[in-house]
Design a protein around this nucleic acid. Structure first.
Lengths: 214, 214, 214, 214
DNA sequence: GATGAATGAGATTTCATTCAT
DNA sequence: AATGAATGAAATCTCATTCAT
């Protein structure tokens, strides 16, 4: 059996194990057995548990980012449509690969190298959002963009909200598979929450304590 | 030394250890040493690693919820002011007790009992938000409340956004302590992102694909 | 509360614990709690776990031997009647104090000092039997007593049979308390098994391979 | 080194350790060291301390029963000869494998599963004895067999007597190896004690208090 | 006379990792 | 290319025992 195939099997088994049990609790024994190979072979191909986990993380990061990029490909549309497309692609992906998403979630709490990898992914997603927001500002004929840090905060909040909704949708799907929310529905919920605010903010309006939106 | 004091020391040490290393990687040896006691005493007082972790989680859940409740005490104010107060209290607390928040974050991936505890906390916070939204709807003279599931999704997204922002603010604070965003500033960012959308939604307006807000 | 009473409570608790769990598995914590006192007090009175166990053993040995002696007090009777009386007393005692007997049983596998204590008890019981056998030989007008080692072996076998029957009776009593064999019945079973053989042997007859009894 | 061989080494070491120190006091460290392997290997092959002990028990039960069965193979002989053959085989085995017997003895006080295993062994041996008694009754032209419970008690007493004699013989052998009783001699002692009584009982005679044998 | 507080030592068990073939 | 055999290190947890009061 060619190396590539074997390696994919191992990564599949590892992603499932890490998703279910977390980095520490998933054992190399279990992973090797689930992959249908002997433990020394796992070490021959993937070097160590840490590198194996890193390989999983990188694969899943790539798949998620590619899915979102694919969703926002169509360039001519309005900014909100593009954002909605991206979110739909995001939720469709998280619904299709719950284990992959779980691995990314776990990676955020597994020390330096993994945190960096996830941060890079977030930055990439945030950049996508930011460029859409810039387009929205231009569309609205307004260039009083908020300070970089505020944009960064908004993107961070958006990504957090999306992740939280993805987890929530996955839990609902596991509980009652028939009536789980679709990716479109979840994306619409998030658009309802944030698009109006983002648009206002891009137009220079802002919410202030004791005053409300201005 | 009286039992109460020792127990608090242990919980403090445990929260720090769990926050830094996660549930599995934090060892009882380390926790006992950090607390300045022997391992058997930890077991005598807290029964097991799992119960120790649970005690940490419960303490931090209690502290966080109490802080937010305290922030939203003032009853007469407008809904957005109250939400802002609650968010400010939330971010002030997460900034003041980063380890506690980290423990809650870890608990979400540590199996049934902890997941349940966190879910209960989220439900409590979401109920606060929901009641504010109801008030906002009444203030706006409109009672066409969205379906329960959508409200649930909105609250989930809001909590996720808040957690994500809190983490982001804590990272900034660790990198450049001098220029970290204040709790008020972070709360304002989140209000900017979501209040307008929430208000619209409560008035019966909604964002729809290909149409924008209606 | 006077020391004697406290000490008896401790021994009672210890006998129950050792009977149920064995020497190693019974913990001083459990014993102290069952006795309703603090652990240091147990150490103050009984010195150590080993001495506590030894105290239990000695108390139960004394009680068992006293019961059997009491049963064989009546001097004028025939040897078989006296043996039967002794066995009845033995089985009545083991039925009345199952925990005490269990402790003695456990003591046989707990190293030198305890083994010695039990061996001494067996020797005492064997001496009783031996003296009855001597009387039986004289009653039968025959003094060709078997060699000392053979008598020792016979006594050993008798005691082993009695212990085994006692355990068996206790198990039956625990399973179906209503229809448990009485001490008299059990003693009769053992008499049926051994008295005829003992009597023969005292008369100089013996069973030989290929020949049967002669 | 092949797994089978290693596993036998481990069982040998474990039997020796359990025989000497008992289940609780024998440590896995000691067993592994005595077997010449590392602790993890013991766990890899035998799963846990409890399963290791069970494996020892089963092996020794099998060996003992096989030895006794082998001893009573010759079918044509008289009942007493067959019983004597079986007892001789029993005492030869207990003399040859004292540790194995000690393990069986320990197993009787180590909780449910082990007690059950030993009870099954006793039942098997008792069945052998019972069938011989039946043959003896037929040989004596008499079928007034005693009630089942009495037979059960007699068998129990016989097994207890045999075990007790085996232990006694082993102690003598350890003290003065030169003059230890042979298996034949010990078997004869037990036959002298019990055969006459068994035979009488099978003929319908019985010992009764105040009356003697009738 | 009695106890709450505390611990050193050691138990079972698991895991990531490596040879020798 | 692949594996059966093996282990050092460290995890959680328990227990007999002692102070200081």
């Amino acid at each position: 059996m060619p190396r590539e195939v074997r390696e994919r099997q191992m990564l599949d088994a590892a992603v499932a194990a890490f998703a279910r049990n977390g980095y520490q609790a998933a054992s190399m024994d279990d992973i090797a057995e689930a992959a249908g190979v002997s433990k020394p072979l796992v070490y021959l191909y993937l070097k160590s548990k840490e590198e194996l986990f890193m390989a999983c993380v990188r694969r899943e990061v790539g798949a998620l980012v590619a899915a979102v990029r694919e969703g926002t490909r169509e360039r001519g549309a309005a900014a909100d449509q593009q954002l909605w497309n991206g979110l739909t692609a995001f939720f469709a992906h998280t619904a299709a690969r719950p284990d992959g998403v779980a691995v990314l979630h776990r990676a955020r709490t597994q020390g330096e190298p993994f945190v960096r990898e996830i941060a890079a992914m977030r930055a990439e997603l945030a950049a996508l959002v930011t460029s859409l927001l810039g387009q929205a500002a231009r569309d609205a004929g307004c260039d009083s963009a908020p300070a970089e840090r505020e944009v960064s905060g908004l993107a961070q909040a958006l990504v957090g909200a999306a992740e939280s909704l993805a987890e929530w949708a996955n839990i609902l799907a596991k509980e009652t598979p028939s009536s789980a929310p679709s990716a479109q529905e979840t994306a619409a919920t998030l658009m309802n929450l944030c698009w109006s605010g983002l648009q206002n903010r891009m137009k220079g309006e802002r919410w202030l304590p004791t005053l409300g939106v201005h």
